[in-house]
Design a protein around this nucleic acid. Sequence first.
RNA 1: GGGAGAUUAGCUCAGCUGGUUCAGAGCAUCUGCCUUACAAGCAGAGGGUCACUGGUUCGAACCCAGUAUCUCCCACCA
Length: 928
Amino acid sequence: MQIPTKYNPKETENKWYQYWMEHGFFKSVPDGREPYTIVIPPPNVTGVLHMGHMLNNTIQDVLIRRARMQGKNACWVPGTDHASIATEAKVVAMLKERGIAKKDLTRAEFLDYAWEWKEKYGGIILEQLKKLGASCDWDRTRFTMDPEMSEGVIDTFIHLYKKGWIYRGVRMVNWDPQGKTAVSDEEVIRKEVNQKLYYISYEVVESESQKDGKTESQKDAATESELSDFRTSQLPDFLTVATTRPETIMADAAICINPNDERYASFIGKKVVIPLINREIPIITDEYVEMEFGTGCLKVTPAHDLNDYNLGLKHHLPVIDILNDDGTLNEKAEILVGKDRFTARKEIAKVLEEAGALEKVEEYKSQIGFSERTDAVIEPKLSMQWFCKMEEMAGPALDCVLNGEVKLIPDKFINTYKYWMENVKDWCISRQLWWGQQIPAWYLPNGQFVVAKTREEALEEVRKLGSREDRKTERPEGWKADSPLSDFPTFGLSDLTQDEDVVDTWFSSWLWPISVFDSQFFSGKNSMGNADLQYYYPTNDLVTAPEILFFWVARMIMAGYEFKHEAPFKNVYLTGIVRDKLGRKMSKSLGNSPDPLDLIEKYGADGVRVGMLFSSPAGNDLMFDESHCEQGRNFANKIWNAFRLVKGWEVDAQLSNPNQTAIAWFQSRFNQALTEIDENFKQYRLSEALITTYKLVWDDFCAWYLEMVKPVYQQPIDASTYKATVGFFENILKIVHPFMPFLTEELWHDELFGERAELDCCIVAQQPKIGEINLKLLNEISTIKEVVSEIRNTRNVKQISPKEALPLAIKSNFEIYYPTYVPILSKLGNLSEVTFIQDKLAGAANFIAGTDEFFIELSNQIDAAAERERIQKELAYLQGFLKSVTSKLSNERFVQNAKAEIVANEQQKKADAEAKIKMLEEGLAGLV
RNA sequence: GGGAGAUUAGCUCAGCUGGUUCAGAGCAUCUGCCUUACAAGCAGAGGGUCACUGGUUCGAACCCAGUAUCUCCCACCA
């Protein structure tokens, strides 16, 4: 036989992928069919494929392929995300390597480099997806920074600004000193880290008002020695605070104690001196301070801690910001200026110790925020940013999930979703970056601003501003009341300065399900949207990781309602996180993630897809194990070899069909499995669907059906069986295709399945319809399988070669009409003859299956002792079983309360057990 | 601190409405097979107090309560 014994994915994958592409099988245009749409969660444009993508996109491809095979107009829209922080960081790093500093470049120059980088590396990940077999409509590939996509982002910004939902203000934000930008709350990842808790002593001094009547000027006039005398005469007191951030003491604005804390009651109203810099700060009281924590004294540093900031607002404390944007100390720190915050921390500890102000240092564990994109430690920072109000948009977005319009799969995420939506905070949308959509705010020389799409339109806005009666804000400098802009010939386009910031990446991705179809939609010119949007929106399923449920999913739903008045999708399938065997999240930095392309190389795309899906129920993390891919590869090989078998058959038209029973059985079994698979898909149990398919193919089709019908070596097969088998095979290819597209397409085109019309491809074959299920036949065959297993087992135990044909005698009550199954039994059990008997066959190996007894006469003597032991063991089990059934049945409450069929069942079990016990006892008596 | 989930064979996991498919699959292990489709395979076997303790029920892996361990999410204890 020329066909190799092993399936070689390398020979088929590229071939068929290209074929599908060339013939436009992935393409979708609106037509009369029902649409089935998925938009890809756009990966980072400069990213590379990781295991999470593999899982994610395998699931999407399975869903989209299945929909396509159900006659729907399947459309999977691919694309990439510009990922502003991550990409900008990469570009900056690249420039640095080339000896170019970002600060030496203009914005335009930098963007040129960035685009160059994007052109070079952008889309690698999409090419990788093709290797996986992703059947995306590549003609629809979008990038979140495509000019028209960006335009949509700007349109929505203006829309929300006009609505009053976007505003600008000074707030405490999460500052990423590495990316030198603000990030949103959701982009801060908290991790527990080992830190040190530094106990620092602050000397207490009398506040001015308490200093024995001396006024401020008197104090100034006092000599250093006088002051010194004063202090020593009072015996210095110290307040000790516990802090994890000693480098920020220079920014301290107060020391705070709990008003109920008796230990410190006498200090209230006094002041302390910050060590090293000797600045005096007040001692204030606030119930916010936990008396139990640390020393019960809190240093208040409004510029560098959110709580302290709030405390500062409450107590009117000054904000002293001692950090630069890059996390180094500035001149306000007075000491350690220019040092990085972490270097400063170490150094100041030393200096404090030398100065005797460091009481002790304790090991301490606490949660610290890290930037999701750069992994830098987040610095709370007070700065002017743009925010988007969330409260109004959160309403409908929450409702649709609660009322089931949008389903979360699994639904355990509803609770977290609800909590988040009910506690949503305004979204910081500005980023101090260049890579992204620049905020369409235009500043006048006096700092006032207008929001408009272009500089020209901005000027128009300014004009309105100048002439509007009901203006609330001040006009540009030099503006005369109510005078039109034309009165100021010198004020022109060039006097407007656009905001330097860009919007958060998610401010573009939240529009994704709309903008991929109609990016012009947000201009408001066509409220219905274009034909694509009308046809494809809302999409069907969104497949993504739970990590970005709030980042992205929630916001897409908000945007869907805000702009399109309808949720963007019906189902959200939340995948698990791919972890390694040790349960660690797979990540590049840990180096514990296999390269997906290597896996594909090793096991074939089909094998890897199956491997990913094998144990990944929605919402459960997946402990990735390469052995699953191996299993997937083996499955491909199994199908391949089943194909080789059938392919090798020669048909003899003269032969009659001896396999009607087997054919009818598999037909039923197939329909039964199909029902289960359908049900599994309906519930998004993809691994279950796969496992059902796997067992159907491997066990039922290969191990049983093919073994039942396959002719003796080099003998021909009858036409009817052949036809049925090829038909089954074709149906199997169909149901396997969504999981293993390449192998199935390859086999689909073999001449075994006859002439294929042009473009008759597995990828667009229609899924088989569910037919009748003959339950009686299924049950009987399952008993027949049991008999076959017993025969094989007997061989195993008695060390008889499978080649040696054995005689089987059946003592049956004919609840099952065995003669029908004699051909199957003979073939699978390798029987020399089958006889029906009335009496037990003494001295023969025997077993019970169903309610019948079976005897195999063996040439060698059976071991009576061993046989007795075996029977006694089985008897003991059955008697125990009978006892429990009997006691159940004699329990009146059971008989009264249980459903009739359950009771009947128990009675059947009892009868069967009794019959079996009788047989065994007779058998035991027969042993000499 | 609040919330969600998990705990079933050595490993990874199913077990959907409480009772016939209920204790299961794959991998791993062991035994025997290079049996003419497949050794990436075939035929078998062993392996479990369903985390623990109670409760509800005629009946519990499944429902309830508590305990333990783990994971995740959220939260400003320096």
